[in-house]
């Protein structure tokens, strides 16, 4: 049986009230959803709470899933993304990187955001020494705007194709590609600055 058929069968059993099938779904998708949440939110605690929220919502709305309208994975990812956007709005994080090299305010003497980022926290050499490369990338990822962040997470971390990402984000495929490009470029610039300072 193909993976999609297995998943559809699990969903049907789950809708019928089969607790074992529900656990199978949780076992299959918890890791993936947790990773999306962790990379987007940047905190293990937030990721755990958000993953639970995603599954609670999934459990309540599972009967609304329509096999004809797309893959279950896309449906789950869309739900995750919507909750992440809600979470982002609640926590009111500032969008940083859309204009990372531009002054954030109208003041003439305002520093570019990249300089502000560089100045925050401990010195770069200490930071690089104390942290893993992955942590540095994760930190840089948090500096990206949510639109760019979600695009690169789905593409480069979750290996989703452009069409599915477009379905999840509800934007045209061209917009998805543009966001991915901008996200990668911003991330590279951020990390290059950090490492150049270390060198």
């Amino acid at each position: 049986m193909e993976d999609a058929q297995i998943v559809n069968s699990l969903v049907r059993r789950c809708i019928a009230g089969d607790a074992v099938a529900w656990e199978e779904i949780v076992q299959r998708y918890n890791r993936r959803i947790y990773n999306i949440c962790y990379r987007f939110a940047g905190s293990a605690d937030d990721a755990q709470d958000l993953t639970q929220e995603v599954f609670i919502k999934m459990y309540r709305t599972l009967s609304s899933y329509d096999v004809e309208r797309g893959a279950f994975m896309t449906w789950v990812t869309t739900m995750t993304r919507n909750l992440l956007v809600d979470h982002f709005r609640k926590t009111k994080q500032d969008r940083v990187t859309d204009s990372i090299d531009a002054p954030p305010s109208e003041h003439e003497d305002a520093m570019p955001l990249s300089d502000q980022i560089r100045d925050k926290g401990p010195a770069p050499d200490i930071r690089v020494q104390s942290r893993e490369t992955g942590e540095a990338v994760q930190e840089a990822l948090q500096k990206l705007s949510p639109e760019l962040r979600e695009a690169v997470i789905l593409r480069d971390l979750q290996d989703m194709d452009y069409r599915d990402i477009a379905a999840v984000l509800k934007v045209p495929e061209g917009t998805v590609k543009s966001r991915i490009n901008r996200g990668r470029a911003e991330l590279a610039r951020l990390l290059q600055r950090i490492y150049r300072q270390v060198m």
């Binding site: 918890n30 890791r31 947790y34 993953t51 470029a185 911003e186 990390l191």
Partner: peptide, 25 residues
């Protein structure tokens, strides 16, 4: 620049969810 950004992102490893996550869910 794009290749570097992609490389950095691909270098991120999958994180392990907490052990109690499934039971909590």
């Amino acid at each position: 620049e794009l290749e570097a950004g992609q490389h950095w992102l691909k270098s991120l490893k999958e994180v392990e969810p907490p052990a109690n996550l499934v039971n909590d869910i």
